[in-house]
Design a protein around this nucleic acid. Structure first.
Length: 562
DNA sequence: CCACACAGCGCG
DNA sequence: AAAGCGCGCTGTGTGG
Protein backbone atom coordinates (compact mmCIF):
# COMPACT_ATOMS: atom_id res chain seq x y z
CA UNK A 1 0.00 0.00 0.00
CA UNK A 2 1.23 3.47 -0.93
CA UNK A 3 0.17 6.76 0.56
CA UNK A 4 0.90 9.72 -1.64
CA UNK A 5 1.50 13.06 0.04
CA UNK A 6 1.56 16.24 -2.01
CA UNK A 7 1.82 19.79 -0.65
CA UNK A 8 -0.90 22.04 -2.00
CA UNK A 9 -1.38 25.77 -1.88
CA UNK A 10 -2.88 27.57 1.12
CA UNK A 11 -1.22 25.54 3.84
CA UNK A 12 -2.75 22.22 2.98
CA UNK A 13 -1.49 18.80 1.99
CA UNK A 14 -3.31 16.37 -0.26
CA UNK A 15 -3.24 12.64 0.35
CA UNK A 16 -4.23 9.62 -1.70
CA UNK A 17 -4.05 5.87 -1.42
CA UNK A 18 -2.39 4.14 -4.37
CA UNK A 19 -2.09 0.51 -5.35
CA UNK A 20 1.08 -1.34 -6.26
CA UNK A 21 1.10 0.26 -9.72
CA UNK A 22 0.48 3.77 -8.51
CA UNK A 23 -3.20 3.77 -9.46
CA UNK A 24 -5.60 5.74 -7.26
CA UNK A 25 -7.58 3.79 -4.68
CA UNK A 26 -10.58 5.91 -3.73
CA UNK A 27 -10.75 9.67 -3.60
CA UNK A 28 -7.82 11.86 -2.56
CA UNK A 29 -8.40 13.97 0.52
CA UNK A 30 -6.91 17.07 2.06
CA UNK A 31 -5.54 18.08 5.44
CA UNK A 32 -4.40 21.35 6.95
CA UNK A 33 -0.72 21.38 7.77
CA UNK A 34 -1.36 21.61 11.49
CA UNK A 35 -3.45 18.45 11.38
CA UNK A 36 -1.00 16.52 9.25
CA UNK A 37 1.43 15.11 11.85
CA UNK A 38 -1.29 13.52 13.95
CA UNK A 39 -3.06 12.13 10.89
CA UNK A 40 0.16 10.73 9.46
CA UNK A 41 1.05 9.13 12.78
CA UNK A 42 -2.35 7.43 12.85
CA UNK A 43 -2.05 6.16 9.29
CA UNK A 44 1.48 4.91 9.95
CA UNK A 45 0.23 2.96 12.96
CA UNK A 46 -2.86 1.51 11.29
CA UNK A 47 -1.72 0.91 7.73
CA UNK A 48 2.11 0.89 7.79
CA UNK A 49 2.17 2.26 4.24
CA UNK A 50 5.06 3.26 2.03
CA UNK A 51 4.86 7.04 1.99
CA UNK A 52 5.33 8.54 -1.44
CA UNK A 53 6.38 12.13 -1.92
CA UNK A 54 8.49 14.28 -4.17
CA UNK A 55 11.14 15.34 -1.68
CA UNK A 56 11.61 13.76 1.72
CA UNK A 57 13.02 16.78 3.53
CA UNK A 58 10.11 18.98 2.43
CA UNK A 59 7.65 17.03 4.54
CA UNK A 60 9.50 14.69 6.85
CA UNK A 61 11.40 17.34 8.84
CA UNK A 62 8.14 18.80 10.07
CA UNK A 63 6.76 15.38 10.92
CA UNK A 64 9.84 14.62 12.99
CA UNK A 65 9.50 17.90 14.83
CA UNK A 66 5.97 16.90 15.66
CA UNK A 67 7.25 13.60 17.00
CA UNK A 68 6.42 11.26 14.12
CA UNK A 69 8.89 8.72 12.71
CA UNK A 70 8.04 6.83 9.52
CA UNK A 71 9.31 3.40 8.57
CA UNK A 72 9.60 3.71 4.79
CA UNK A 73 9.04 5.98 1.86
CA UNK A 74 9.59 6.48 -1.85
CA UNK A 75 11.41 9.69 -2.70
CA UNK A 76 10.37 10.60 -6.23
CA UNK A 77 13.16 13.14 -6.79
CA UNK A 78 15.89 10.71 -5.82
CA UNK A 79 14.32 8.00 -7.96
CA UNK A 80 14.16 10.43 -10.88
CA UNK A 81 17.87 11.20 -10.56
CA UNK A 82 18.67 7.49 -10.81
CA UNK A 83 16.16 6.47 -13.44
CA UNK A 84 16.64 9.26 -15.96
CA UNK A 85 20.19 8.16 -16.74
CA UNK A 86 20.20 4.51 -15.74
CA UNK A 87 21.25 2.34 -18.67
CA UNK A 88 19.08 -0.42 -17.18
CA UNK A 89 15.93 1.56 -17.95
CA UNK A 90 14.42 0.69 -21.34
CA UNK A 91 11.04 2.40 -21.10
CA UNK A 92 11.09 5.25 -23.66
CA UNK A 93 8.11 6.90 -21.96
CA UNK A 94 10.04 7.39 -18.76
CA UNK A 95 12.91 9.19 -20.43
CA UNK A 96 10.41 11.63 -21.89
CA UNK A 97 8.68 11.98 -18.55
CA UNK A 98 11.85 12.75 -16.64
CA UNK A 99 12.75 15.29 -19.29
CA UNK A 100 9.43 17.07 -18.81
CA UNK A 101 9.80 17.20 -15.07
CA UNK A 102 13.38 18.41 -15.00
CA UNK A 103 12.72 21.09 -17.59
CA UNK A 104 15.43 21.43 -20.20
CA UNK A 105 17.67 18.76 -18.88
CA UNK A 106 19.51 17.07 -21.63
CA UNK A 107 22.19 17.48 -18.98
CA UNK A 108 21.81 17.32 -15.24
CA UNK A 109 20.46 20.42 -13.58
CA UNK A 110 21.34 21.50 -10.11
CA UNK A 111 18.29 21.73 -7.91
CA UNK A 112 20.14 23.19 -4.99
CA UNK A 113 17.97 25.11 -2.60
CA UNK A 114 19.16 28.53 -1.58
CA UNK A 115 20.23 28.69 2.06
CA UNK A 116 17.71 31.45 2.85
CA UNK A 117 14.99 29.28 1.45
CA UNK A 118 15.71 26.33 3.67
CA UNK A 119 15.42 28.06 6.99
CA UNK A 120 13.63 26.82 10.00
CA UNK A 121 10.06 27.35 8.86
CA UNK A 122 7.77 24.65 10.13
CA UNK A 123 7.40 23.29 6.63
CA UNK A 124 10.02 23.59 3.94
CA UNK A 125 8.60 25.50 1.04
CA UNK A 126 8.43 23.19 -1.94
CA UNK A 127 10.07 24.63 -5.01
CA UNK A 128 6.99 24.34 -7.14
CA UNK A 129 3.48 23.10 -6.64
CA UNK A 130 2.59 20.19 -8.83
CA UNK A 131 -0.88 18.77 -8.63
CA UNK A 132 -1.48 15.47 -6.91
CA UNK A 133 -2.31 13.94 -10.27
CA UNK A 134 0.96 15.10 -11.84
CA UNK A 135 2.99 13.67 -8.99
CA UNK A 136 1.01 10.44 -9.04
CA UNK A 137 1.68 10.04 -12.75
CA UNK A 138 5.39 10.44 -12.27
CA UNK A 139 5.37 7.87 -9.49
CA UNK A 140 3.45 5.40 -11.66
CA UNK A 141 5.90 6.04 -14.50
CA UNK A 142 8.80 5.29 -12.17
CA UNK A 143 7.25 2.00 -11.06
CA UNK A 144 6.74 1.03 -14.68
CA UNK A 145 10.28 2.03 -15.64
CA UNK A 146 11.65 -0.18 -12.90
CA UNK A 147 9.45 -3.17 -13.72
CA UNK A 148 10.24 -3.03 -17.43
CA UNK A 149 13.95 -2.45 -16.85
CA UNK A 150 16.74 -4.90 -17.54
CA UNK A 151 17.17 -5.55 -13.79
CA UNK A 152 14.08 -4.66 -11.73
CA UNK A 153 15.39 -6.21 -8.53
CA UNK A 154 18.56 -4.15 -8.60
CA UNK A 155 16.77 -0.89 -9.29
CA UNK A 156 14.15 -1.65 -6.64
CA UNK A 157 16.91 -2.17 -4.11
CA UNK A 158 18.70 1.00 -5.16
CA UNK A 159 15.57 3.14 -4.93
CA UNK A 160 14.63 1.62 -1.58
CA UNK A 161 18.11 2.32 -0.25
CA UNK A 162 18.02 5.90 -1.54
CA UNK A 163 14.65 6.54 0.06
CA UNK A 164 15.72 5.02 3.35
CA UNK A 165 18.83 7.17 3.16
CA UNK A 166 16.63 10.23 2.72
CA UNK A 167 14.80 9.35 5.93
CA UNK A 168 18.13 8.85 7.71
CA UNK A 169 19.44 12.19 6.43
CA UNK A 170 16.38 14.05 7.71
CA UNK A 171 16.62 12.27 11.06
CA UNK A 172 20.31 13.06 11.39
CA UNK A 173 19.64 16.72 10.81
CA UNK A 174 16.78 16.59 13.28
CA UNK A 175 18.93 14.92 15.96
CA UNK A 176 22.29 16.55 15.30
CA UNK A 177 25.75 15.42 16.40
CA UNK A 178 26.17 16.15 20.13
CA UNK A 179 28.73 18.93 20.25
CA UNK A 180 30.45 20.34 23.33
CA UNK A 181 30.95 24.09 22.81
CA UNK A 182 33.19 24.41 25.87
CA UNK A 183 35.57 21.71 24.70
CA UNK A 184 35.70 23.25 21.24
CA UNK A 185 36.45 26.73 22.64
CA UNK A 186 39.12 25.26 24.88
CA UNK A 187 40.86 23.63 21.96
CA UNK A 188 40.65 26.81 19.89
CA UNK A 189 42.21 28.88 22.68
CA UNK A 190 44.93 26.33 23.13
CA UNK A 191 45.86 26.48 19.44
CA UNK A 192 45.08 30.10 18.54
CA UNK A 193 44.91 32.16 21.73
CA UNK A 194 41.86 33.97 23.07
CA UNK A 195 38.91 34.63 20.78
CA UNK A 196 39.77 37.72 18.70
CA UNK A 197 37.43 40.59 17.85
CA UNK A 198 35.46 39.88 14.67
CA UNK A 199 37.60 40.27 11.56
CA UNK A 200 40.87 40.17 13.54
CA UNK A 201 43.54 37.49 13.50
CA UNK A 202 43.90 35.43 16.66
CA UNK A 203 46.97 36.34 18.71
CA UNK A 204 49.08 33.28 17.93
CA UNK A 205 48.49 33.71 14.20
CA UNK A 206 49.39 37.40 14.45
CA UNK A 207 52.67 36.47 16.17
CA UNK A 208 53.50 34.18 13.27
CA UNK A 209 52.72 36.90 10.73
CA UNK A 210 55.15 39.26 12.53
CA UNK A 211 57.88 36.61 12.41
CA UNK A 212 57.20 35.82 8.77
CA UNK A 213 57.38 39.48 7.75
CA UNK A 214 60.78 39.74 9.43
CA UNK A 215 62.17 36.48 8.10
CA UNK A 216 61.04 37.26 4.56
CA UNK A 217 61.83 40.98 4.77
CA UNK A 218 58.30 41.85 3.66
CA UNK A 219 56.81 44.25 6.20
CA UNK A 220 53.33 44.25 4.68
CA UNK A 221 53.05 40.60 3.71
CA UNK A 222 49.60 39.03 3.86
CA UNK A 223 50.25 35.28 3.98
CA UNK A 224 46.62 34.59 3.10
CA UNK A 225 47.27 35.76 -0.45
CA UNK A 226 48.91 32.97 -2.44
CA UNK A 227 49.99 35.40 -5.18
CA UNK A 228 51.65 37.79 -2.78
CA UNK A 229 53.19 34.97 -0.82
CA UNK A 230 54.64 33.33 -3.93
CA UNK A 231 56.31 36.56 -5.03
CA UNK A 232 57.74 37.11 -1.58
CA UNK A 233 59.08 33.56 -1.43
CA UNK A 234 60.76 34.02 -4.81
CA UNK A 235 62.41 37.27 -3.67
CA UNK A 236 63.90 35.25 -0.82
CA UNK A 237 65.28 32.61 -3.15
CA UNK A 238 62.66 29.99 -2.35
CA UNK A 239 61.92 28.58 -5.79
CA UNK A 240 58.51 26.95 -5.52
CA UNK A 241 55.80 26.87 -8.19
CA UNK A 242 52.91 26.88 -5.75
CA UNK A 243 52.47 27.60 -2.07
CA UNK A 244 51.13 24.17 -1.22
CA UNK A 245 52.35 22.54 1.96
CA UNK A 246 54.12 19.61 0.41
CA UNK A 247 56.02 21.81 -2.02
CA UNK A 248 57.04 24.24 0.71
CA UNK A 249 58.41 21.33 2.70
CA UNK A 250 61.10 20.82 0.08
CA UNK A 251 62.78 24.05 1.17
CA UNK A 252 64.81 24.43 4.34
CA UNK A 253 64.52 28.22 4.55
CA UNK A 254 63.87 29.33 8.16
CA UNK A 255 60.58 30.97 7.15
CA UNK A 256 59.05 27.68 6.03
CA UNK A 257 58.37 26.28 9.46
CA UNK A 258 56.42 29.30 10.77
CA UNK A 259 54.66 29.54 7.41
CA UNK A 260 53.40 25.98 7.60
CA UNK A 261 52.37 26.56 11.18
CA UNK A 262 50.50 29.69 10.10
CA UNK A 263 48.67 27.78 7.38
CA UNK A 264 47.64 25.11 9.84
CA UNK A 265 46.27 27.60 12.35
CA UNK A 266 44.63 29.66 9.64
CA UNK A 267 42.78 26.63 8.41
CA UNK A 268 41.49 25.83 11.88
CA UNK A 269 40.46 29.43 12.50
CA UNK A 270 38.67 30.04 9.20
CA UNK A 271 37.05 26.64 8.72
CA UNK A 272 36.22 25.46 12.24
CA UNK A 273 36.88 28.42 14.52
CA UNK A 274 34.62 30.65 16.60
CA UNK A 275 32.63 31.77 13.57
CA UNK A 276 31.86 28.16 12.72
CA UNK A 277 30.78 27.46 16.29
CA UNK A 278 28.39 30.42 16.33
CA UNK A 279 26.95 29.54 12.95
CA UNK A 280 26.49 25.80 13.34
CA UNK A 281 26.21 24.72 16.95
CA UNK A 282 22.84 25.29 18.57
CA UNK A 283 21.57 23.65 21.75
CA UNK A 284 24.71 21.56 21.88
CA UNK A 285 24.15 19.90 18.52
CA UNK A 286 25.71 20.20 15.06
CA UNK A 287 22.92 20.10 12.45
CA UNK A 288 24.14 20.35 8.87
CA UNK A 289 22.07 19.57 5.80
CA UNK A 290 22.88 16.23 4.25
CA UNK A 291 22.27 15.92 0.53
CA UNK A 292 21.53 12.33 -0.38
CA UNK A 293 22.88 11.53 -3.81
CA UNK A 294 24.53 14.96 -3.90
CA UNK A 295 27.58 13.47 -5.61
CA UNK A 296 27.34 12.04 -9.16
CA UNK A 297 28.52 8.69 -7.92
CA UNK A 298 25.68 8.49 -5.41
CA UNK A 299 27.63 9.51 -2.37
CA UNK A 300 26.13 12.06 -0.04
CA UNK A 301 27.28 15.63 0.02
CA UNK A 302 26.43 18.20 2.62
CA UNK A 303 25.55 21.84 2.80
CA UNK A 304 26.67 24.01 5.63
CA UNK A 305 29.32 23.58 8.23
CA UNK A 306 31.52 21.37 6.09
CA UNK A 307 29.84 18.39 7.70
CA UNK A 308 31.76 15.78 5.76
CA UNK A 309 35.13 17.42 6.33
CA UNK A 310 35.25 17.74 10.11
CA UNK A 311 39.00 17.76 10.71
CA UNK A 312 40.49 15.31 13.15
CA UNK A 313 41.74 18.19 15.28
CA UNK A 314 38.24 19.24 16.40
CA UNK A 315 36.66 15.81 16.78
CA UNK A 316 37.30 16.01 20.52
CA UNK A 317 34.30 18.35 20.69
CA UNK A 318 31.87 15.72 19.41
CA UNK A 319 30.98 14.16 22.76
CA UNK A 320 28.34 11.87 24.15
CA UNK A 321 26.02 13.23 26.84
CA UNK A 322 26.52 11.96 30.39
CA UNK A 323 25.51 8.33 30.64
CA UNK A 324 25.59 8.01 26.87
CA UNK A 325 28.27 6.84 24.45
CA UNK A 326 29.23 7.30 20.85
CA UNK A 327 29.52 4.24 18.66
CA UNK A 328 31.77 4.93 15.70
CA UNK A 329 31.83 2.20 13.07
CA UNK A 330 34.03 2.30 10.02
CA UNK A 331 33.85 -0.16 7.13
CA UNK A 332 37.37 -1.15 6.18
CA UNK A 333 38.68 -1.02 2.62
CA UNK A 334 35.22 -0.93 1.10
CA UNK A 335 36.17 0.03 -2.44
CA UNK A 336 38.63 -2.77 -3.18
CA UNK A 337 36.25 -5.28 -1.60
CA UNK A 338 33.48 -3.94 -3.82
CA UNK A 339 35.72 -4.33 -6.86
CA UNK A 340 36.48 -7.93 -5.91
CA UNK A 341 32.79 -8.74 -5.53
CA UNK A 342 31.64 -6.93 -8.70
CA UNK A 343 34.25 -8.46 -10.92
CA UNK A 344 33.87 -11.92 -9.37
CA UNK A 345 37.65 -12.10 -9.43
CA UNK A 346 38.24 -15.27 -7.45
CA UNK A 347 41.77 -14.34 -6.37
CA UNK A 348 40.85 -10.89 -5.19
CA UNK A 349 37.72 -12.19 -3.49
CA UNK A 350 39.92 -14.61 -1.58
CA UNK A 351 42.02 -11.68 -0.42
CA UNK A 352 38.80 -9.87 0.51
CA UNK A 353 37.69 -12.64 2.86
CA UNK A 354 39.60 -11.41 5.85
CA UNK A 355 40.41 -8.38 7.95
CA UNK A 356 43.20 -6.87 5.87
CA UNK A 357 42.80 -7.15 2.12
CA UNK A 358 45.97 -5.21 1.34
CA UNK A 359 48.05 -7.55 3.51
CA UNK A 360 46.59 -10.56 1.71
CA UNK A 361 47.39 -9.05 -1.68
CA UNK A 362 50.89 -8.20 -0.48
CA UNK A 363 51.48 -11.82 0.45
CA UNK A 364 49.93 -13.10 -2.76
CA UNK A 365 52.14 -11.13 -5.12
CA UNK A 366 54.06 -8.18 -3.72
CA UNK A 367 56.64 -9.96 -1.60
CA UNK A 368 54.72 -9.11 1.54
CA UNK A 369 54.90 -5.35 0.95
CA UNK A 370 51.54 -4.04 2.12
CA UNK A 371 52.23 -0.48 1.03
CA UNK A 372 53.08 -1.60 -2.51
CA UNK A 373 49.89 -3.62 -2.72
CA UNK A 374 47.85 -0.67 -1.50
CA UNK A 375 49.43 1.83 -3.88
CA UNK A 376 48.96 -0.52 -6.81
CA UNK A 377 45.31 -1.18 -6.06
CA UNK A 378 44.41 2.43 -5.34
CA UNK A 379 46.14 3.41 -8.55
CA UNK A 380 44.08 0.87 -10.47
CA UNK A 381 40.84 2.27 -9.06
CA UNK A 382 41.78 5.92 -9.56
CA UNK A 383 43.52 5.60 -12.90
CA UNK A 384 47.01 6.59 -11.88
CA UNK A 385 49.38 6.53 -14.83
CA UNK A 386 52.61 7.67 -13.23
CA UNK A 387 55.03 6.73 -10.52
CA UNK A 388 55.09 3.65 -8.39
CA UNK A 389 51.48 2.59 -8.87
CA UNK A 390 51.90 2.54 -12.67
CA UNK A 391 55.04 0.46 -12.27
CA UNK A 392 53.20 -2.08 -10.12
CA UNK A 393 50.19 -2.37 -12.44
CA UNK A 394 51.44 -5.28 -14.61
CA UNK A 395 51.95 -7.42 -11.53
CA UNK A 396 48.49 -6.55 -10.21
CA UNK A 397 46.94 -7.35 -13.56
CA UNK A 398 48.62 -10.73 -13.64
CA UNK A 399 47.34 -11.52 -10.15
CA UNK A 400 43.78 -10.25 -10.62
CA UNK A 401 42.94 -10.18 -14.32
CA UNK A 402 39.18 -9.94 -13.95
CA UNK A 403 39.21 -7.14 -11.41
CA UNK A 404 41.61 -5.07 -13.46
CA UNK A 405 39.68 -5.80 -16.65
CA UNK A 406 36.55 -4.36 -15.04
CA UNK A 407 38.09 -0.98 -14.25
CA UNK A 408 39.95 -0.82 -17.55
CA UNK A 409 36.80 -1.53 -19.50
CA UNK A 410 35.03 1.23 -17.54
CA UNK A 411 37.88 3.60 -18.41
CA UNK A 412 37.76 2.75 -22.12
CA UNK A 413 34.00 3.27 -22.22
CA UNK A 414 34.42 6.67 -20.62
CA UNK A 415 37.16 7.69 -23.02
CA UNK A 416 34.80 6.97 -25.91
CA UNK A 417 32.16 9.16 -24.30
CA UNK A 418 30.03 6.24 -23.19
CA UNK A 419 28.13 5.63 -19.97
CA UNK A 420 29.03 3.18 -17.22
CA UNK A 421 26.92 1.92 -14.34
CA UNK A 422 27.19 0.84 -10.76
CA UNK A 423 26.17 -2.63 -9.62
CA UNK A 424 22.61 -1.53 -8.81
CA UNK A 425 22.20 0.62 -11.90
CA UNK A 426 23.18 4.22 -11.30
CA UNK A 427 24.78 5.44 -14.52
CA UNK A 428 27.04 8.33 -15.41
CA UNK A 429 25.29 11.38 -16.83
CA UNK A 430 26.07 12.10 -20.50
CA UNK A 431 29.39 13.87 -21.00
CA UNK A 432 28.08 17.37 -21.68
CA UNK A 433 28.46 19.96 -24.43
CA UNK A 434 32.25 20.23 -24.36
CA UNK A 435 32.47 16.57 -25.28
CA UNK A 436 30.56 17.14 -28.54
CA UNK A 437 32.75 20.14 -29.29
CA UNK A 438 35.91 18.18 -28.61
CA UNK A 439 34.81 15.50 -31.06
CA UNK A 440 34.73 17.94 -33.95
CA UNK A 441 38.10 19.60 -33.44
CA UNK A 442 40.68 19.93 -36.17
CA UNK A 443 43.83 21.60 -34.95
CA UNK A 444 46.57 19.67 -33.22
CA UNK A 445 46.37 21.78 -30.13
CA UNK A 446 42.64 21.19 -29.89
CA UNK A 447 43.18 17.51 -30.49
CA UNK A 448 45.59 17.29 -27.59
CA UNK A 449 43.07 18.98 -25.36
CA UNK A 450 40.38 16.57 -26.51
CA UNK A 451 42.65 13.62 -25.71
CA UNK A 452 43.39 14.95 -22.26
CA UNK A 453 39.69 15.43 -21.72
CA UNK A 454 38.97 11.86 -22.81
CA UNK A 455 41.59 10.51 -20.41
CA UNK A 456 40.08 12.53 -17.57
CA UNK A 457 36.64 11.17 -18.44
CA UNK A 458 38.12 7.67 -18.45
CA UNK A 459 39.52 8.14 -14.95
CA UNK A 460 36.13 9.39 -13.85
CA UNK A 461 34.16 6.43 -15.25
CA UNK A 462 36.81 3.99 -14.00
CA UNK A 463 36.36 5.29 -10.47
CA UNK A 464 32.61 5.79 -10.81
CA UNK A 465 31.73 2.10 -10.92
CA UNK A 466 33.68 1.38 -7.75
CA UNK A 467 32.95 4.50 -5.73
CA UNK A 468 29.28 4.38 -6.78
CA UNK A 469 28.80 0.73 -5.86
CA UNK A 470 30.55 1.34 -2.54
CA UNK A 471 28.04 4.14 -1.92
CA UNK A 472 25.23 1.68 -2.63
CA UNK A 473 26.64 -0.81 -0.16
CA UNK A 474 26.94 1.96 2.42
CA UNK A 475 23.32 3.07 1.95
CA UNK A 476 22.10 -0.51 2.36
CA UNK A 477 24.19 -0.72 5.52
CA UNK A 478 22.73 2.56 6.75
CA UNK A 479 19.16 1.46 6.03
CA UNK A 480 19.76 -1.81 7.86
CA UNK A 481 21.14 0.01 10.89
CA UNK A 482 18.18 2.38 10.90
CA UNK A 483 15.56 -0.33 10.97
CA UNK A 484 17.41 -2.33 13.62
CA UNK A 485 17.79 0.67 15.91
CA UNK A 486 14.07 1.36 15.64
CA UNK A 487 13.41 -2.04 17.14
CA UNK A 488 15.56 -1.50 20.24
CA UNK A 489 13.73 -1.44 23.57
CA UNK A 490 13.86 1.57 25.82
CA UNK A 491 16.31 1.17 28.68
CA UNK A 492 14.68 0.72 32.08
CA UNK A 493 13.07 3.85 33.37
CA UNK A 494 13.83 5.86 30.24
CA UNK A 495 11.30 8.09 28.53
CA UNK A 496 10.74 7.90 24.80
CA UNK A 497 12.21 11.33 24.32
CA UNK A 498 12.81 11.16 20.60
CA UNK A 499 10.63 9.96 17.74
CA UNK A 500 13.60 8.05 16.36
CA UNK A 501 13.88 5.91 19.47
CA UNK A 502 16.46 5.50 22.23
CA UNK A 503 19.49 5.18 19.96
CA UNK A 504 20.34 8.13 17.73
CA UNK A 505 21.97 7.56 14.34
CA UNK A 506 23.64 10.96 14.13
CA UNK A 507 26.37 10.92 11.48
CA UNK A 508 27.35 9.24 8.22
CA UNK A 509 30.55 9.76 6.26
CA UNK A 510 30.79 7.59 3.13
CA UNK A 511 31.87 4.42 4.93
CA UNK A 512 31.52 5.42 8.56
CA UNK A 513 28.56 5.92 10.90
CA UNK A 514 28.08 7.34 14.38
CA UNK A 515 25.40 6.35 16.89
CA UNK A 516 24.71 8.30 20.09
CA UNK A 517 22.94 6.12 22.64
CA UNK A 518 22.64 5.30 26.34
CA UNK A 519 25.59 3.23 27.48
CA UNK A 520 23.50 0.19 28.39
CA UNK A 521 22.18 0.03 24.83
CA UNK A 522 25.62 -0.10 23.24
CA UNK A 523 25.96 -3.89 22.98
CA UNK A 524 22.71 -3.97 21.04
CA UNK A 525 23.89 -1.14 18.80
CA UNK A 526 27.15 -2.91 18.03
CA UNK A 527 25.21 -6.01 17.07
CA UNK A 528 22.89 -3.95 14.87
CA UNK A 529 25.78 -2.30 13.04
CA UNK A 530 27.55 -5.58 12.42
CA UNK A 531 24.57 -7.58 11.28
CA UNK A 532 23.51 -4.72 8.99
CA UNK A 533 26.96 -4.81 7.36
CA UNK A 534 26.65 -8.53 6.68
CA UNK A 535 23.16 -8.02 5.32
CA UNK A 536 24.31 -5.23 2.99
CA UNK A 537 26.87 -7.54 1.41
CA UNK A 538 24.23 -10.19 0.82
CA UNK A 539 21.67 -7.74 -0.52
CA UNK A 540 24.06 -6.58 -3.21
CA UNK A 541 25.98 -9.69 -4.08
CA UNK A 542 23.90 -12.61 -2.84
CA UNK A 543 25.76 -15.24 -0.87
CA UNK A 544 28.43 -12.63 -0.44
CA UNK A 545 31.74 -13.76 -1.87
CA UNK A 546 33.65 -11.18 0.18
CA UNK A 547 33.58 -9.85 3.74
CA UNK A 548 32.91 -6.28 4.79
CA UNK A 549 34.61 -6.11 8.18
CA UNK A 550 34.03 -3.14 10.46
CA UNK A 551 36.15 -1.28 12.95
CA UNK A 552 33.83 -0.51 15.84
CA UNK A 553 34.65 1.77 18.76
CA UNK A 554 32.44 2.73 21.69
CA UNK A 555 33.80 5.99 23.04
CA UNK A 556 33.01 9.24 24.82
CA UNK A 557 34.27 11.51 22.06
CA UNK A 558 34.76 11.18 18.33
CA UNK A 559 38.56 11.62 18.47
CA UNK A 560 38.86 8.45 20.54
CA UNK A 561 37.71 6.35 17.60
CA UNK A 562 40.61 4.99 15.52
C1' DC B 1 28.22 46.34 -5.60
C1' DC B 2 27.78 41.07 -6.81
C1' DA B 3 29.16 36.75 -9.26
C1' DC B 4 32.51 33.66 -10.28
C1' DA B 5 37.17 31.22 -10.72
C1' DC B 6 41.10 29.77 -8.43
C1' DA B 7 44.24 28.23 -4.79
C1' DG B 8 44.55 25.72 -0.96
C1' DC B 9 43.19 22.23 2.31
C1' DG B 10 39.95 19.49 5.05
C1' DC B 11 37.37 14.71 4.53
C1' DG B 12 36.43 9.73 2.33
C1' DA C 1 55.79 11.95 -1.12
C1' DA C 2 52.11 12.62 -4.03
C1' DA C 3 49.48 10.73 -7.41
C1' DG C 4 45.02 8.89 -9.58
C1' DC C 5 38.81 9.64 -7.90
C1' DG C 6 34.79 12.32 -5.41
C1' DC C 7 33.35 16.50 -2.58
C1' DG C 8 32.60 21.78 0.49
C1' DC C 9 34.37 25.95 2.39
C1' DT C 10 37.28 30.12 2.83
C1' DG C 11 39.85 33.99 1.27
C1' DT C 12 41.79 36.26 -2.64
C1' DG C 13 41.53 38.11 -7.09
C1' DT C 14 39.08 39.44 -11.31
C1' DG C 15 35.54 40.95 -14.36
C1' DG C 16 31.06 42.89 -14.90
Amino acid sequence: MHLLLVPADDDAVRLARLDAHGVLLGEPWQLGREDLPAAVAGLERDEAPRWVWDTTSDLYSALLQAGTRLARCHDISLARTVLRFSTLVQDPDYARFALDVTGSAEYPVSDAVEPEQRQESLFEAPRSHRSLEEVRQEFAAQLKAVETSRAPARLRLLLAAESAAALVAAEMRFLGVPWDQAVHRELLEEALGPEPAPGRRPALMEDLVVRLRELLRAPRLNPDSPQELLKTLHRNGIEVKTTRQWELKSSDHPAIEPLLEYKKLSRLHTANGWTWLDAWIRDGRFRPDYVVGGVVTGRWSSRGGGALQIPRSVRRAARALPGWKLLVADASQVEPRILAAMSADEGMARAARGQDLYAEIADAGFGGSRSSAKIALLGAMYGSTTGESARLMPQLKKLYPRAIALVEEAARTGERGGAVSTWLGRSTPPPGPDWDAAQRTQSQEEQRRADAWARARGRFTRNFVVQGTAAEWAECWLAGIRSRLAGLPLPDGAEAASPTGPAELVFFLHDEIMIHAPEELMPRCVEAVESAAREAGTLLFGRAPVDFPLTVAVVDSYDQAK
